[in-house]
Design a protein around this nucleic acid. Sequence first.
DNA 1: GCAGGTTACGTCAGTTACTGACGTATACGC
DNA 2: GCGTATACGTCAGTAACTGACGTAACCTGC
Lengths: 195, 195
Amino acid sequence: MPRSGEDARIRLRQAALELFRERGYDATTAAEIAARAGVTERTFFRHFPDKREALFDGEDAFRAALSDGVLAAPAHATPMEALFHAFRSVEPMISANRAFAEPREAVIAQTPALQERVLTKTAGLIATLSAALRRRGVDEAVAGLAAQVGMAALSYAARTWAQDPAAGMDAHLRRAFDALQRLSAPGAPTVTQPR
Amino acid sequence: MPRSGEDARIRLRQAALELFRERGYDATTAAEIAARAGVTERTFFRHFPDKREALFDGEDAFRAALSDGVLAAPAHATPMEALFHAFRSVEPMISANRAFAEPREAVIAQTPALQERVLTKTAGLIATLSAALRRRGVDEAVAGLAAQVGMAALSYAARTWAQDPAAGMDAHLRRAFDALQRLSAPGAPTVTQPR
DNA sequence: GCAGGTTACGTCAGTTACTGACGTATACGC
DNA sequence: GCGTATACGTCAGTAACTGACGTAACCTGC
């Protein structure tokens, strides 16, 4: 038997993606995934804490890259600028993973349990961004709000990018941040003095 | 046996909250909740699709109120103004439910599975807000982004309110929207021309 | 090259969240 | 008073996990 266990993990997540595509998430059991990967159900749960997690392997590296991107932004950058810098820095990572991410999205789109997990993962990314901003000296509450808003912009860009891949992720990111500005700052303080 | 089933539902969610507080979410089984409520485990799952949902009963009414609040905003209101109006309109609802919500938050705070469900509920609220904005004629993509950002502000306000209840939810809401503006509009377009 | 510790894995038994099928009793419309 | 709908009980079953224990492959030190 192999010593590393890393190849078993890769086979498992590959088998999971295949089976989920073939018969859907709910209709495939963990035992079936394990069988296709050539291991036991118990081994599956040793590599992944639950069945859903098999589709989200490798998120840690992405989180780390995002954090690095925030910290690598110029010192004088505002919170939103730092986030913009971070998103641009991980863009190659997103593009490279697209071939694997695309079929995965199709599976997620039709299973609520996986959509719920996506939300958790997104929240984790927001927490990472917020922590990175705080390490730049940003106030805690502001960092949390900025991270959440920034993540909204990133999701927005990813959505528009999926519909229009020709423009490039970079352009969509820029447009998303522009839309953000238009939304919250139409010119005058319209909220604090509503009328 | 009662005809309505509504009282059984109330006993179930009450029993769930009590038991979760006493021994934690993971350590209490659905059968135990049902037993304390005087019904069967099967009945529990007839009222709630899963164990977590027992803690989120009544969300539908809140969603409906939020939607109404958005639609009731003045016709000339911008998207963010409409959201601000909606949040102010449901403030009594939030305050009234606080006695029940507070112990619930304590349970949620220490169980990841419930935190994940909170995220799902929040996403549902965002979808509701987005749909309501669209019915006001707001562009779909903008509505989605505005709803997400607005929800971030609401969460922000709820957090600061929990730490400083004296100021009133209304004041915290206003501060949250102010913070939003400061974040995205520091005066000059700092993102599109980063330097 | 071999002893000893580490690590990934198999096996087995058990718990519990959930689901479908079927029967029953209660409240309600007529 | 009589069907009918509805909430509930009962029973059986599936599948997601979990702990305990054993084993074989690797790695380390000598």
